[in-house]
Amino acid sequence: MNHTMELVIGAIFINNILLAKFLGNCPFLGVSKKMETAVGMAGAVVFVLTLAGMITWLVEHYLLAPFGIEYIRTMAFILIIATLVQFVELFLRKSIPALYQALGIFLPLITTNCAVLGVAIINIQEGYDLFDAIVFSAASAAGFGLALVLFAGIRERFETIRVPKQIEGTGIGLVTAGLLALSFFAFKGMI
């Protein structure tokens, strides 16, 4: 239990996937201008990342490893993630239209979100078992969501303040992300 707690807190606060490991920065800067879109993206990532973490773990241990073809892991995982995203989109559209309305437009963007592939590979490299892999994937996704929503909250205020023209938009966004990452440093002593 203790180990699981460590894994969760570590993935959300200490090694936050966005702010400490730099995975998934493209959507981080892309969809954080409005709170609504940030929440939608965060939800979609939590959903897909947890599912992808589980499926890629199963594929690695029951398909790639027995045949000794771990070297095509990158290829296998990206295809799984791309397919998974398509299926999730189809499934949501048919069965849970309300959720599809909320997350739908973000789903295609997730294929190229390196947080998903990154976490899938980390699961394998760290030698997690299936339970740990699912916990770590979900916690990483939660960390992604937390950082994204916090960041969107800060960024909405940029609408009303005056920023030097040269660093408008992405520039000031990056500097703000740096300060947010700095504040996450405070969690370092927790474990």
Partner: peptide, 22 residues
């Protein structure tokens, strides 16, 4: 060298590029 520094450095460099480009 740390993570926050990466964000700040890239952000400021971007500003500098815009300044020169502008």
């Amino acid at each position: 060298q740390q993570a926050p520094g990466a964000f700040v450095a890239l952000g400021l460099l971007l500003g500098l590029m815009n300044l020169v480009g502008g």
